[in-house]
Simulated scan of single mutants.
Amino acid sequence: MAPQIFHLSSARWRTALVGVIGQLRRLVRQGPPKIIIDFSITKHLHPCGTLLFVSELDRLQREFAGVIRCNYPKDDVVEQLFQHIGLLQKLGRTPRKEITAGNVTPWHFESGHEIDASKFASMFEDYAGSLWQSDRRDLWVGMQEAMANCIEHAYTEERGDGLPSRKRWWMFAREESGMLSVALCDLGIGIQRSLPKNPEAAGFIQQIVNVVTGQRKTPEAKHIKAAIEYGKTRTKDRHRGKGLGQIFGFVERSPDSSLRIMSNKGIYTFAPERRTGEERVEHFADYNDSIEGTLIQWRIPLKAGDPI
């Protein structure tokens, strides 16, 4: 049974969602004639958990077409969203809803296996007029680099789950309350395993890990931060950190923007701190459960009017 809430920043619901995904992978490897996903209790879909779930299901469907099916969700909004992004159709259910929910219609979903800017160009046509010219340029470059990260670095080794590793990325985007939210997911080996391993790079990265994050017991999150810092200092090289450094730089230059990067068990957040009034602060955490991949989320304010 699918969990009630699809969320990766809550330890409870992260464990539930990752557990269901792992069970699906085990079942398809065993080769049962049919697997039915029960969405009866699913009520809340956060972008992070939903994108991971959709990505994993899409991967399994591409390898084992027709094996996984589902029932119709009982929650109307959940069914509308799953229909809107094409998930129900992939799971053998005929679309039956008119997509009217205000928190469903703004969502755009794309997936691909190449560094193909045209894949997300159409997604941002609706938002281009609401972004400053410099933001449009930086966002475009950041998205291309994020795609390059997925294709060139996330799949350099086998993932280790007993299934074939094929290069692919998945993306959500939406506008809500004057903010543009983008999420990009890959199901590769994670940031820590994909960082450069030559002695010079490894030494530099370890130095960053030791200096910028102190003695916190968050090894995966530390390496996300190290990848960002390494990317900012090695902009001419092709490596996993380059795209992260460019995305971070874009968010850092854009007031009120925020960035969250999840990779395997780690999570790094750079966001406004409303409780203390600080403009933006960094948070590091490692969870018990690995998402077995990388998911990048960033939120960018849309302009309210013409620049003064």
Rank of each mutant, 00 (worst) to 15 (best):
A146V: 08
K74H: 12
W169V: 01
Y230Q: 06
R25C: 14
K97P: 02
R159Q: 12
K303R: 15
R29D: 01
S181C: 13
R280Y: 07
G214T: 05
H153W: 08
H46I: 02
G31T: 04
A304R: 15
D138F: 06
I5Y: 11
I208S: 11
V251N: 03
L8S: 10
D289V: 03
L184Q: 08
G66N: 10
F109P: 06
L180K: 12
D75E: 11
P32H: 09
A117K: 10
V20L: 13
A221E: 05
L195P: 07
D76W: 04
R280F: 05
I151K: 00
S118N: 01
S134P: 00
I205R: 07
C150T: 15
W298P: 00
V78I: 03
G142C: 03
Q61W: 01
K97H: 05
A148I: 00
E282F: 04
G86A: 05
L163D: 02
G305I: 04
G231E: 02
G277N: 06
S263V: 08
I5V: 15
S194E: 06
A2G: 05
R29M: 14
F120A: 01
V251E: 01
L8T: 07
E282H: 05
Q133T: 14
E229W: 02
S257P: 00
I296H: 01
Q4G: 06
V77A: 14
D256K: 15
N103Q: 12
I205A: 06
F124R: 06
L295V: 01
R93M: 14
I5W: 04
D161R: 01
L27R: 13
R159N: 08
L131A: 05
S177D: 14
S290Y: 04
G243L: 08
E220H: 11
F270A: 01
R274W: 05
T105V: 14
E125K: 10
Y155G: 05
G142F: 01
I224Y: 02
K43N: 14
H108M: 11
G19D: 14
E282I: 09
D38F: 10
F53Y: 11
V141K: 09
N198K: 02
Q23D: 13
P33Q: 09
V78A: 10
Q4A: 13
D161K: 03
I300H: 12
G22M: 02
L51T: 10
Q23S: 14
L195A: 10
F270S: 02
T269Q: 15
A154E: 06
N198T: 04
K222H: 09
S130F: 13
I21D: 07
L81D: 04
D286E: 10
H84D: 12
Y287L: 04
H84C: 10
T50C: 08
Q83I: 06
I261M: 06
P301K: 14
P164N: 10
Q192I: 00
G112D: 09
R275T: 10
E273D: 15
S258M: 08
V78M: 07
E229H: 03
C48H: 13
G31P: 03
M143Y: 00
A65W: 08
I115W: 00
G160A: 07
I300D: 02
L52N: 01
K222N: 07
M123E: 00
E282W: 00
A154I: 08
G178Q: 15
A117V: 02
Q4S: 12
D126I: 07
T15N: 09
S130P: 00
G129Q: 15
D289C: 03
R26M: 12
Y268E: 09
K303F: 03
N198H: 09
R96S: 15
V212S: 15
V20K: 09
L81H: 13
M262S: 15
